[in-house]
């Protein structure tokens, strides 16, 4: 019991992301409304983004912006700078998530224009008729 507790305290950030991810995943597969599914997908993406950014943290590290002249003269010590690669990856992932949300909202609006509803069951009924 003691060891499990200390394990949770040392890695509490992963627990937060997994719980966020479960909320999003349940909204994606359990809900019948398309807007709720999209919200679930956004929560899922937030969990992934937080997970990646937290991987780049170093204890005692600063932001990945250095003094140019100082760096050219003496070099940079990687232990004092956070890992910049996850930041770059997530910068592009956020923009993709915005585009995906935009396209999804557009398609939903078109579905609503066509069928008059956003509930999955009713849309399926109307398609079969």
């Amino acid at each position: 019991m003691e060891s499990i507790l200390s394990e949770i305290v040392a890695k509490y950030n992963y627990w937060i992301y997994v719980i966020l991810m479960m909320i999003g995943f349940y909204a994606m597969i359990g809900k019948r409304n398309l807007v709720k599914k999209l919200l679930g997908m956004n929560i899922f993406q937030t969990a992934i983004i937080l997970f990646y950014v937290s991987m780049g943290v170093k204890r005692g590290g600063g932001i990945p912006i250095v003094d140019k002249h100082e760096a050219l003269l003496h070099g940079v010590n990687p232990a004092h700078i956070d890992n910049p690669v996850p930041h770059v990856l997530m910068l592009t992932a956020i923009v993709v998530s915005v585009s995906v949300t935009g396209v999804a909202l557009a398609i939903m609006q078109r579905i609503y224009r066509e069928y008059g509803t956003l509930e999955e069951d009713e849309i399926l009924e109307k398609i079969e008729r």
Partner: peptide, 22 residues
């Protein structure tokens, strides 16, 4: 663990970027 400087994500390519990019 959170904030580990020797985690697998921060030992391979990122150190090269930090040292050489400027």
């Amino acid at each position: 663990p959170w904030g580990d400087p020797h985690s697998p994500a921060s030992v391979h390519v990122s150190n090269v970027y930090i040292e050489k990019s400027v």
